[in-house]
Simulated assay, not measured.
Amino acid sequence: RARQTAAAIAAATGHPLDGPLPWLDEIDHGPDEGQPEAQVLARLGPEALTAWDERGIPPQDWKVDAPSRIAAWKDWFARKGEGADLLVTSNGAARFALLALGLPLANLKLRTGAFGELTVEEGAGVHLIRWDERP
């Protein structure tokens, strides 16, 4: 879905589509992949999902590699460049942007169809403009 969304945005804006960034790949939810939310909640318990949504701590059996994702976000924010970048990813991968910046919110999650906006200014750092907003 992320690649389809990115392709549609690129076509609509006339900007070229860059290749995928592996650190933005969707989280592997292990035994919970494709399961209804109620079933995932019953298996994991509310504490595990709260830890994931509030602190980015993945539930048992999910394959996340949080340290690598945080490092990749830090590298992305540190690179030099001009203009605007649009990154399309799942909420599981996006939450690590906030953790990389030390900007924990009450909830790190981006709901389906929502977006986050950050600015990166040389010498001024990275600033959160908005998070979990739907157009």
Score class of each variant (00 low, 15 high):
residue 63 K to P: 01
residue 21 L to P: 00
residue 19 G to A: 15
residue 42 A to K: 14
residue 8 A to K: 14
residue 8 A to S: 14
residue 38 A to G: 14
residue 78 A to T: 03
residue 49 L to E: 06
residue 94 A to L: 06
residue 67 P to V: 12
residue 98 L to D: 01
residue 125 G to H: 06
residue 88 V to Y: 00
residue 26 E to T: 09
residue 50 T to N: 04
residue 102 G to K: 05
residue 70 I to N: 04
residue 104 P to K: 13
residue 105 L to M: 10
residue 53 D to S: 10
residue 2 A to W: 03
residue 7 A to K: 13
residue 122 E to W: 07
residue 95 R to M: 15
residue 105 L to T: 13
residue 62 W to T: 00
residue 11 A to C: 01
residue 69 R to S: 04
residue 27 I to W: 00
residue 53 D to K: 10
residue 74 K to V: 07
residue 52 W to R: 03
residue 68 S to T: 13
residue 107 N to S: 15
residue 111 R to Q: 09
residue 106 A to K: 11
residue 130 R to I: 04
residue 39 Q to V: 08
residue 99 L to C: 06
residue 90 S to N: 12
residue 37 E to I: 08
residue 28 D to E: 11
residue 44 L to G: 08
residue 42 A to L: 08
residue 110 L to V: 14
residue 33 E to F: 10
residue 37 E to C: 02
residue 37 E to P: 03
residue 49 L to T: 07
residue 31 P to V: 01
residue 121 E to K: 13
residue 92 G to T: 11
residue 91 N to C: 08
residue 108 L to P: 02
residue 16 P to W: 05
residue 34 G to F: 05
residue 7 A to G: 10
residue 99 L to T: 11
residue 4 Q to G: 11
residue 31 P to Y: 03
residue 77 F to Y: 08
residue 123 G to K: 07
residue 51 A to I: 06
residue 110 L to H: 05
residue 52 W to Q: 01
residue 59 P to R: 00
residue 53 D to Q: 13
residue 70 I to V: 15
residue 134 R to W: 09
residue 133 E to N: 07
residue 36 P to A: 11
residue 106 A to S: 12
residue 34 G to C: 07
residue 48 A to S: 13
residue 135 P to F: 02
residue 80 K to A: 15
residue 73 W to S: 01
residue 13 T to P: 03
residue 57 I to N: 03
residue 56 G to M: 00
residue 5 T to V: 15
residue 24 L to M: 12
residue 34 G to Q: 09
residue 35 Q to S: 14
residue 3 R to I: 06
residue 106 A to R: 10
residue 6 A to E: 13
residue 88 V to W: 00
residue 50 T to C: 02
residue 102 G to Q: 05
residue 84 A to R: 12
residue 62 W to F: 10
residue 30 G to L: 00
residue 58 P to C: 04
residue 91 N to H: 06
residue 70 I to L: 11
residue 52 W to H: 07
residue 101 L to F: 03
residue 31 P to Q: 06
residue 36 P to K: 10
residue 91 N to V: 08
residue 37 E to N: 07
residue 108 L to A: 09
residue 73 W to C: 02
residue 52 W to P: 10
residue 23 W to Y: 14
residue 133 E to H: 12
residue 50 T to W: 15
residue 32 D to P: 00
residue 103 L to E: 14
residue 56 G to V: 01
residue 108 L to Y: 01
residue 23 W to V: 03
residue 119 T to I: 11
residue 135 P to N: 06
residue 16 P to E: 01
residue 38 A to Q: 12
residue 21 L to R: 13
residue 100 A to P: 13
residue 49 L to G: 04
residue 94 A to P: 02
residue 59 P to G: 02
residue 53 D to H: 13
residue 102 G to E: 06
residue 85 D to R: 07
residue 104 P to W: 00
residue 86 L to T: 13
residue 68 S to A: 15
residue 58 P to Y: 02
residue 134 R to Y: 09
residue 102 G to I: 06
residue 108 L to W: 00
residue 96 F to Y: 15
residue 70 I to T: 09
residue 133 E to F: 05
